[in-house]
Design a protein around this nucleic acid. Structure first.
Lengths: 356, 356
DNA sequence: TTGTACGCGTTATCAC
DNA sequence: GTGATAACGCGTACAA
């Protein structure tokens, strides 16, 4: 590996002069600068950022911890963080925890060892204790998409209560009174907020809630499928369901298709997140969109502001969700023409095939 | 930031002793070791990986360059790389190019500056010149999912020809003779390979190709939609279409739905990649699956082997694709009951809504 | 068993 | 204008 010493030797000057030339110091005459730079280029010099980081005390690296980078939701956050960081000459170290709490902790310390200038955490569960350690450490950090109940940490999340309100008020406005909710894991704050908002809206409108229409599930299609089957095959069926995320909603859609319950005629369905696939022609899911990419950008911008300009004020950002109305919601009891004669899946020639 | 010097002072020993204790040197008696470690823990010491990297000449970091981390295909690759790296104590620096060639180059040099021990490139186009620079540099690298035609680089890709063969032979076996192909951008090797395989299979079976059924498109749903509309509204329609990836196939599906062309009765459709959403109840796309996650793992394993054990043999790995038959393919002319009376989208109450 | 001295590649602070 | 020197935090050969 070629160093500034090598260049110095080749140019017949001292290493300091080379350093100055490479950093465009105003002290050096332009002729010397360009001459030295030319030599550097010829020798194939690449400056060692490790050494620079050591002497400057900053690494110009941001750490990013996500539970599953294969999930496009976190992928979009990562894209926001990465692009923003790149614009300021920062790099991003990616850590994928696979939802493993222990791995979160390992990563957090590993990243501190690497002297990252800031930490973006998108994987926090409500009661994760390691956020406490983090709060004590020097490294600036920011929570994305999920909150912790332990610490008063800087965060950028979507306004989950508002999102839940949007979804359920949409259903109420359509005339629904028999509304159910399928939440995510109970240790995820955002899901609980959406649920609470749901309760509030129904209370406001003096609409009773049938507790058998409430379920908790993992954030997966399969869990949504199971919950959907249970609710839809019960003695009394809701006319509308609000799912805590789109994956669950899609599982419910599958369950409805299998049971011959037509959407939206017999069941209105609202999801959350507006993943790319909610807009698919055959899906057309009504859902609450959140600015995922923006959340990544804002988180990164905050960290850059803190590390570069030493800004200290805490970030507490609730982003506005947006209701996207597609074709899975309609007034209750809308008997559309010809919905009764055949089951949708029969029409489509679709069979339920779970295995591969 | 607390250093080994601070610990040394607190423990009344020299920095080297501290270093030895922390690295579990056999030269030190256990008592001293544990005593020093205890002090280190109390002081909240975190070793500086930057300094370590400088002195050891390795950073224990892998670089990963992808065109779009929000795309679950690359997300899965990233997951494989990240998990594999983590198991060996390596970190991953993520670089998102947004498909920008210039950014690829910038990132490649930036990563070399950071002295990454290896580079995983998932964004290469056939004729990218910067792969040449890379080949000359010292940093080991590996191409994933896409090849370059310029250099004899180590790579791990799916066997695209075999994948194309699987798809088209499936269609031929079903009895199709009027088969079209919608490829990706012409500068992406993998797409071309799939196309070529398609031609070969048809040649083998003495099936003529109607050139109007061949299209090139971006790897997006929208591009697939446009291409699908063009092909399906032409004077003669193919009975089957093979799309170079699932996104294009989904666009075609949308086009078919809009034109009232029933799938699979009037049109068989095969995609490529088996993205998660191909298995959705209302989609059920027949497609060619590739082991995306594994490709990430294998790439990372190769780099780790090269950097750690100095293994030098070139990796040239073609992974086996797998045909996943779902419900978008059937023998041609299968007139299912009642497909003519209404357009599918009318039945579903779906309107084509492109804007948000 | 432990301490000293040096080097990793770079920048910053002096002095010339 | 330019060069020598110290410093960043750590590991290690060598000396004690």
């Amino acid at each position: 590996m070629v160093t500034i010493r090598d260049i110095a030797q080749a140019a017949g000057v001292s290493p300091s002069t080379v350093s100055r030339a490479l950093n465009d110091s105003p002290l050096l005459p332009d002729g010397t600068k360009s001459r030295i730079r030319e030599i550097a280029r010829e020798l194939g010099y690449e400056r060692n950022e490790l050494a620079l980081g050591l002497v400057k005390g900053v690494s110009r690296v941001l750490g990013l911890v996500v539970p599953d980078i294969g999930n496009p939701f976190f992928g979009e956050i990562a894209r926001g963080v990465s692009n923003t960081a790149h614009n300021s000459g920062y790099s991003v170290v990616l850590c994928n925890t696979e939802g493993d709490r222990e791995r979160e902790r390992v990563y957090a310390t590993l990243l501190r060892r690497r002297r990252v200038d800031g930490l973006v955490l998108a994987s926090v569960k409500m009661d994760d204790p390691y956020v406490l350690e983090l709060a004590r450490s020097q490294t600036p950090y920011v929570l994305v998409s999920r909150l912790s109940r332990f610490v008063d940490a800087p965060f950028v999340v979507v306004d989950d209560r508002e999102g839940g309100r949007l979804a359920v008020e949409h259903l109420v406005r359509l005339g629904h009174t028999r509304i159910g909710f399928i939440g995510g894991p109970s240790d995820v704050q955002s899901s609980n907020d959406r649920m609470e908002a749901c309760r509030e809206v129904l209370d406001d409108h003096r609409i009773d809630i049938d507790e058998t229409w409430l379920r908790s599930a993992e954030f997966t299609q399969q869990a949504g499928h199971e919950a959907g089957l249970e609710i839809l095959s019960g003695p009394t069926r809701p006319s509308a369901l609000f799912a805590a995320n789109d994956m669950i909603a899609l599982g419910v859609m599958q369950a409805a298709d299998e049971l011959g319950v037509t959407i939206p005629a017999e069941l209105s369905l609202v999801g959350f997140n507006d993943i790319a696939y909610a807009a698919f022609p055959r899906i057309q899911l009504t859902t609450v969109a959140q600015p995922t990419y923006d959340m990544g950008c804002i988180a990164a911008e905050y960290l850059l502001a803190v590390t570069q300009h030493g800004r200290k004020r805490k970030l507490r950002k609730f982003l506005e969700p947006r209701l996207v109305v597609r074709n899975t919601t309609a007034p209750p009891g809308t008997t559309s023409s010809g919905t009764q004669q055949t089951q949708p899946r029969a029409k489509r020639g679709l069979r339920s095939k779970k295995g591969r």
